[in-house]
Simulated scan of single mutants.
Amino acid sequence: MSDNILRCSIKAVGGWGQNYTNWQELSELLTTGATAENTASSPKPEIIPANERRRAPLPVKLAVESSWQATQSAGLDPKDLACVFVSGLGDTQLTDYMCKVLATENMQLSPTKFHNSVHNAAAGYWTISTGCMKAANSVAGFNESVSLAILEAVTQCVQEQAPVQITFYDAPSSEILKPLLKNDQSFSASLIIEPVLESNQTDSNLLEMQVVSQATEWPELDLETHLDTSYKQNPSARILAVLNMLTKDSADTVLLPLSAETSLQLTLHNPKLVN
């Protein structure tokens, strides 16, 4: 076995997006294409205090909702989990707002909106709401965001021998930016990964990761229409390439683009739909 292979296991999943409000509904979409009734434009994560929740922007709500679902499903206290948050687009609505205001004569930004515009806003809301004092990283890599976040989180999980939460989230792009960032759908998903013994090959959802010197494109997936649109337009929805492996009956391998000349090779052994 190559020395550069890192191993962890996927313990739990959470999610929220178009036509699903949790991992159970998302897994149904992946396996049968059945959609759930979800007419809400935004989740309402109860872990954020009501006053703060009203001021929280959509990307923050997406991230916190799926994070809370995953930690509860895993039966872990979020304050004990290091976390990696990743958004490929950031908050384009607030970026648009700030550019417009700064182009006026008064240039007076809303302090709340400016506060929410930073890329680690979701990590901030999450750690404050849960009392988490562990490491909280915020990653951005546009279309390679998912690969970079997985590389960061799995490396940290193995190095520290401790579970890690990974949250992927992106909201629809602002209208003025859609010619450049064509994304019409909200998507969020969170994974809880945990370390495994080097010799243990029997864990459910045993994930092996290695960086390979090979260029690749994002894999083609056979998805329900809305999920397919998200997968192709929403940078964070590229995690569906991994979540889809959880629905298989046997080991599966995917290559995810990491850079112009490298890829992330992920193999999932003993797949089992997590709670």
Rank of each mutant, 00 (worst) to 15 (best):
residue 76 L to S: 09
residue 5 I to P: 15
residue 26 L to D: 06
residue 140 A to E: 09
residue 150 I to W: 06
residue 225 T to Q: 08
residue 239 I to V: 13
residue 36 A to I: 00
residue 21 T to C: 02
residue 54 R to N: 13
residue 170 D to Y: 00
residue 188 S to P: 09
residue 230 S to V: 00
residue 261 E to Y: 06
residue 11 K to I: 13
residue 197 L to T: 13
residue 121 A to P: 14
residue 174 S to L: 00
residue 217 E to G: 07
residue 252 D to T: 15
residue 32 T to F: 08
residue 44 K to V: 00
residue 191 L to E: 06
residue 161 Q to T: 11
residue 3 D to H: 10
residue 94 L to H: 15
residue 258 L to Q: 15
residue 27 S to L: 03
residue 157 C to K: 12
residue 162 A to E: 11
residue 22 N to E: 04
residue 265 Q to S: 12
residue 240 L to F: 13
residue 71 T to K: 03
residue 160 E to A: 07
residue 10 I to V: 12
residue 95 T to Q: 14
residue 250 S to V: 11
residue 77 D to C: 00
residue 141 G to I: 05
residue 141 G to E: 10
residue 105 E to L: 03
residue 256 L to I: 14
residue 70 A to Q: 05
residue 48 I to T: 13
residue 237 A to G: 13
residue 214 Q to R: 06
residue 88 G to L: 01
residue 18 Q to H: 03
residue 40 A to N: 13
residue 103 A to Y: 02
residue 70 A to R: 02
residue 207 L to Q: 09
residue 89 L to V: 10
residue 109 L to C: 11
residue 116 N to E: 04
residue 147 S to I: 08
residue 13 V to E: 10
residue 166 I to E: 09
residue 213 S to M: 02
residue 267 T to I: 01
residue 274 V to N: 10
residue 247 T to G: 11
residue 232 K to V: 02
residue 188 S to R: 10
residue 82 A to G: 15
residue 123 A to V: 10
residue 20 Y to D: 01
residue 32 T to P: 10
residue 192 I to F: 02
residue 268 L to Y: 10
residue 196 V to F: 01
residue 162 A to Y: 10
residue 87 S to G: 11
residue 264 L to H: 13
residue 123 A to L: 04
residue 187 F to L: 02
residue 166 I to T: 07
residue 16 W to E: 05
residue 116 N to L: 03
residue 97 Y to C: 03
residue 104 T to L: 01
residue 126 W to I: 05
residue 263 S to Y: 01
residue 72 Q to Y: 01
residue 172 P to V: 01
residue 246 L to S: 13
residue 218 W to K: 10
residue 153 A to L: 04
residue 124 G to L: 02
residue 47 I to F: 06
residue 70 A to I: 04
residue 131 G to D: 12
residue 116 N to D: 13
residue 273 L to A: 07
residue 268 L to V: 03
residue 140 A to W: 03
